[in-house]
Design a protein around this nucleic acid. Structure first.
Lengths: 191, 191
DNA sequence: ATCAGTCTAGACCGCATAGTCTACAAAAAT
DNA sequence: ATTTTTGTAGACTATGCGGTCTAGACTGAT
């Protein structure tokens, strides 16, 4: 076998692992390279910057998270969408920690690389579209107060209910689902 | 007038202002000193380290926030305690941003200075005591599930409901209080 | 008046980190 | 066989930061 080749994906994996272990702040170009035993030059051959690396890591996670959420909304099941967060947190504890405990800005400080900006915008749009669709079916229309309610019940509450457990590195207990469900019924009614 | 004197409190104020404007990460010893036109030496004359400065800033804010919360619990008014967060966010938008949008660890990385550790612990204890007291009056006892419910309804939900607005630098609209109130009644019942 | 203690003043040091540069080795194209 | 391309290799640079150090000015006690 000839000289080693360091793949694009390997850098993403290494960065993801480091972030999961010590937080996104600990993901430095050197630490990533060191973990792969790759030289710095190889890194900068694949990535324009550290921001590009961490932006990709973040975007990948968000997209994976969003999939189940969008599917639940597509199926017209608002409660399932609300419960997607604790369920996903149980099956993907590392990603959940990174996504819910840190913010986008802990991954990429300042401006995002141009090509990723696009992906981030699309992702946000798709999410807002889900909220609007839910608001229409649950509340009849998608005006500002209805959207506000939708955000509360589908995003804010589920995330808040799960956060504390993620901080303590626990898998969210069943009571979390109860709390989310009770809140859901209180806010949107039973239908 | 003789040479200038740079007070302890001035450093705290400058640090607080900088944090409010650009986030706690932007509070560097140099930036604080520069804002006061004080030399670095004066800073280190008053503070052992950057961590001590930011720890004090954080602790002051938490204590001020907690006051109203504890008062509501003392008065036996759980709903008022839940609504304290949006109300306080309206009257202290800067502090609310710093406290709710960032974590303790964004102020002091790693270990806390010994003397502050004490304050932080006391603060956490006082808060948990409030939760326990509320759990007893609202749910009859303060077992693990009751405490979990108390945390949800008094802390997690109110903070989550307010966060998005703080991010956008809006004052939380009245609907936030509605959502918190509806959730409160759903979780603890009406009494 | 003198001395000790307090505080300003800012140059300086050490370290971590993002990013560059040049050299070279292997593979692919011609 | 020769040239070009691709990617490894890692020393080096630039920058920003927390923290130290020494010099000296002001203040209050004696």
């Amino acid at each position: 076998m000839g000289r080693p080749i360091f793949e694009h994906a390997s850098f993403l994996e290494a960065a993801h692992a480091l972030a999961a272990e010590h937080g996104p702040g600990a993901v430095t170009v050197d630490s990533v390279a060191q973990r792969l035993k790759a030289p710095k030059g190889s890194f900068y051959h694949r990535f324009r910057s550290r921001d590009e690396l961490l932006g990709q890591v973040w975007l990948n996670m968000v997209l994976a998270y969003q999939e189940g959420f969008v599917a639940a909304i597509d199926a017209g099941d608002g409660l399932a969408a609300a419960l997607h967060t604790p369920r996903w947190a149980r099956s993907h504890p590392d990603d959940a920690r990174l996504l819910l405990l840190y913010s986008r800005h802990d991954f990429v400080h300042g401006d995002w690389p141009a090509d990723l900006k696009r992906g981030v915008r699309d992702q946000a749009e798709r999410f807002e579209e889900c909220l609007a669709r839910f608001a229409r079916t649950a509340f009849g229309r998608a005006g500002s107060p209805q959207l506000r309610r939708a955000t509360f019940v589908l995003a804010e509450v589920p995330i808040a209910a799960v956060k504390g457990h993620l901080e303590r590195r626990e898998t969210p207990p069943p009571i979390v689902d109860d709390l989310i469900t009770e809140t859901y019924h209180a806010i949107v009614g039973r239908r």
